Amino acid sequence: MPDALAQAVAPSSLTGDGGAARPPGPGPGSALVDAVALNKPRRTLIPLPRPVRRLAGPLLLVLVWQLLGTFGVVGERVLAPPSAVFSAGWELTRTGELTDHLLASLTRVASGLALGVSAGLVIAVVAGLFRLGDELLDSTMQVLRALPVLGLLPLVIIWFGVGETPKIALVAFGTAFPVYVNTYSAIRGVDHRLVESGRTAGLGRLGLVRHVILPGAVPGFLVGLRFALTGAWLIMIIAEQLNATNGIGYLMNQAQSWYRTDIIVLGLLIYGLLGLGADALVRLLERRLLSWRHGFEGGA
Results as ranks from 00 to 15, higher is better:
residue 124 A to Q: 14
residue 113 L to K: 07
residue 91 E to S: 14
residue 194 L to E: 04
residue 198 G to R: 05
residue 169 A to N: 06
residue 160 F to S: 03
residue 172 A to G: 15
residue 120 G to L: 06
residue 98 L to F: 08
residue 107 T to R: 15
residue 204 G to H: 03
residue 104 A to N: 10
residue 101 H to T: 08
residue 206 L to D: 04
residue 119 A to F: 15
residue 166 P to F: 10
residue 188 R to C: 04
residue 194 L to I: 08
residue 94 R to E: 04
residue 151 G to L: 01
residue 126 V to P: 00
residue 120 G to K: 05
residue 130 F to R: 11
residue 103 L to D: 00
residue 205 R to D: 14
residue 136 L to C: 02
residue 118 S to G: 00
residue 155 L to K: 08
residue 209 V to C: 10
residue 110 A to W: 12
residue 174 G to L: 09
residue 189 G to S: 13
residue 133 G to P: 02
residue 128 G to E: 10
residue 131 R to K: 12
residue 170 L to H: 08
residue 193 R to S: 03
residue 117 V to F: 02
residue 139 S to K: 00
residue 130 F to D: 14
residue 207 G to F: 09
residue 203 L to K: 07
residue 194 L to C: 05
residue 198 G to Y: 11
residue 136 L to R: 04
residue 181 V to K: 02
residue 178 P to N: 00
residue 124 A to S: 13
residue 112 G to Q: 06
residue 123 I to L: 14
residue 150 L to S: 03
residue 116 G to C: 02
residue 129 L to F: 15
residue 214 L to N: 13
residue 196 E to D: 10
residue 191 D to V: 04
residue 206 L to M: 04
residue 188 R to E: 01
residue 158 I to G: 13
residue 122 V to L: 05
residue 94 R to Q: 07
residue 168 I to P: 11
residue 157 I to H: 06
residue 167 K to G: 01
residue 205 R to Q: 14
residue 115 L to V: 06
residue 104 A to K: 03
residue 93 T to F: 15
residue 174 G to Y: 04
residue 166 P to A: 06
residue 214 L to K: 14
residue 118 S to R: 00
residue 179 V to N: 13
residue 131 R to P: 02
residue 122 V to I: 09
residue 127 A to S: 12
residue 162 V to E: 14
residue 185 S to P: 00
residue 179 V to P: 08
residue 184 Y to K: 07
residue 125 V to M: 15
residue 186 A to V: 02
residue 127 A to K: 04
residue 155 L to R: 08
residue 106 L to Q: 02
residue 108 R to W: 09
residue 135 E to S: 05
residue 131 R to M: 08
residue 133 G to Y: 04
residue 91 E to P: 07
residue 206 L to A: 08
residue 183 T to E: 01
residue 175 T to D: 05
residue 209 V to T: 01
residue 142 Q to D: 05
residue 163 G to T: 08
residue 141 M to Q: 14
residue 97 E to W: 15
residue 202 G to D: 01
residue 147 L to Y: 05
residue 160 F to R: 08
residue 211 H to T: 09
residue 102 L to S: 09
residue 104 A to Q: 11
residue 135 E to M: 10
residue 158 I to N: 15
residue 92 L to D: 07
residue 145 R to Q: 10
residue 137 L to V: 12
residue 169 A to F: 13
residue 165 T to E: 07
residue 144 L to I: 09
residue 194 L to G: 01
residue 146 A to E: 06
residue 174 G to W: 00
residue 178 P to S: 02
residue 189 G to R: 04
residue 102 L to P: 02
residue 171 V to I: 14
residue 171 V to W: 06
residue 147 L to A: 08
residue 153 L to G: 05
residue 171 V to L: 06
